[in-house]
């Protein structure tokens, strides 16, 4: 009977906090990289645009 109770007892919850932290770190890092990439590409386009406008003004 004692063995039966021991076997029926639910197992203790494993400590998987490290995996959870790793999972959320990946989620937020990838999203942050994408947002930074959008910002950086926008910045580069602004530089290109100002250069092109300068050339256009010089030509006209």
């Amino acid at each position: 009977m004692i063995f039966g109770i021991l076997l029926d007892h639910p197992p203790t919850t494993p400590d998987t906090t490290g995996y959870m932290i790793l999972g959320f770190a990946v989620i937020f890092t990838v999203m942050a990289i994408h947002i930074f990439s959008l910002y950086q590409r926008n910045r580069n386009l602004r530089i290109d645009l100002s250069l092109l406008e300068e050339i256009e003004d010089e030509e006209s």
Partner: peptide, 19 residues
């Protein structure tokens, strides 16, 4: 709440499905 069988890693599931 924390899921009893998998523990805290189960919380990743919410954003895993959403993404």
């Amino acid at each position: 709440p924390m899921e009893a069988t998998m523990g805290n890693v189960q919380r990743v599931f919410y954003f895993h499905i959403a993404t």
